[in-house]
Design a protein around this nucleic acid. Structure first.
Lengths: 248, 248
DNA sequence: CGCCTGTTTGAGAAGACTCAAAACGGGTGG
DNA sequence: CCACCCGTTTTGAGTCTTCTCAAACAGGCG
């Protein structure tokens, strides 16, 4: 059976039946590759697809009338991205590749078929969407109520948590694919202030930098400081309905 | 058939079958009433319920280690709230009544049954969740990249759009149930700065105030200034699977 | 009538921003 | 192999928005 990052992600939370795995694979419509910096889809462009991120990093962003930009979230392998186009016929965000990216497009109607054929999978996707909603609430809280050092610490902890989802194991170093300007767009800061914040954190011993590589020597202390909670580790599955009989 | 605000909300987007309406009513488990200021659920408290808001306003908030608070979203009649507890066994936000509130509790497992029995309804709920995700992205962008006047203008426009969902018609006045301190918690500002921002907007003719009542005399201009988009008006339903046969 | 919550105003401080420019580093072409 | 270029990072100086602390004011309620 072909590799599919969404299946791997969901199986982290619960075992899927053969029928459920097959349904995900059937929903996919080929593969697409993008180079670093490519845009998968533009804000406001007509769109009938979701994408399963198979490999690489990308970000979802929004442009303002003022010319500023807000990066809304980072996406990693196993994410189902572009869900905003589920609600409308146009994309509400721009998706940009931060590294070479491979995705599996999923037509919206295929998602509809999947909801009908595999209700338990639908419920699981709803639970994952709820978890991501909470992660977004965390970011909103970070931007609304914390200073630059806390925001950057939160971002680094969040990236670490996500990296551990794909590459299991003891990751304590991040190879940043973002420029300081992009980090600023994610945190609601200017690139200049991001730079100064990095230096502040370095001076205080919160981070160690080697080029674009960042290590958190005392992750526990940072986690306590900002009250970071890993929202990706588990998702409740106790309420899901029974899976469809496989013979179906 | 009893009144149910979620049914009314969903029927704004597409007609429901008798079976679908019945499924929503069956999922509900009684009714609960709360007075202004009551908390429906506390952050981190064990929780196995969602709530359909039947009447009244409430807000979802998060408390920080620093003692600050972030209000994440406002909820109105027709909203399905507490979805964060879908993903875990504990609530991730505190829900507080801003007015006398009436809700219909829905056990998580009942939602699971509903997903199985009425896949089209499940898909519609997923679409509504996607729309709310985009609305949250709007707030994130507002906090990250706009100043106090723009944030307050965006909040007022958003409230107006939501009021129009319940009370159809030409609403151009908001009876604010929030104190300036609460508005600050929603916008990432201090109550003092919220007060000054109100005054600034009044001076510039952007708003007219009569006590806690706010009117937007030139909504079009404000909408253009902040690039506000109403995310609640419509939701795409073209991709939904066919409804279940009613005889089932 | 006094109290409590919420609103309004003032004054000074701080965090983050703007503008400007220098230093760095990786890739390209001669 | 070196010089150059361009994007990125770093540093400096001054400004501005928003915050903090403080206190007066207004309105509803017991």
């Amino acid at each position: 059976m072909p590799r599919n990052a969404l299946i791997a992600r969901l199986e982290r939370y619960t075992d899927l039946t053969t029928g459920e795995r097959a349904a995900i694979l059937e929903a996919g419509d080929g593969h697409q590759r993008f180079a670093t910096g490519d845009r998968l889809i533009d804000e406001n462009a007509p769109n009938q697809y979701l994408y399963i991120v198979e490999d690489g990093w990308l970000h979802a962003s929004r442009d303002l009338v003022s010319g500023a930009r807000q990066i809304l979230r980072l996406h990693y392998p196993g994410d189902l991205v572009g869900t905003s186009s589920i609600a409308w016929a146009r994309a509400s965000t721009t998706l940009t590749a931060l590294s070479p990216v491979e995705v599996t497009p999923v037509p919206k109607v295929a998602l509809g078929r999947l909801f009908k054929a595999q209700p338990r999978l639908a419920a699981l996707l709803y639970a994952v969407a709820a978890a991501e909603d909470v992660a977004m609430s965390d970011r909103l809280t970070s931007l609304g109520r914390t200073n630059a050092v806390e925001r950057l610490a939160t971002l680094l902890l969040d990236m670490l948590a996500r990296l551990r989802l794909s590459r299991d194991g003891a990751v304590d170093t991040i190879d940043l694919p973002l420029t300081q300007s992009e980090i600023g767009d994610a945190l609601g800061l200017t690139s200049i202030h991001v730079n100064r914040t990095f230096r502040t954190m370095e001076t205080r011993g919160m981070i160690v930098r080697e080029g674009r590589r960042v290590r958190l020597p005392n992750e526990a202390a940072l986690t306590a400081m900002v009250g970071f909670v890993d929202r990706y580790e588990t998702v409740a599955t106790d309420w899901l309905p029974a899976p469809e009989p496989i013979a179906a």
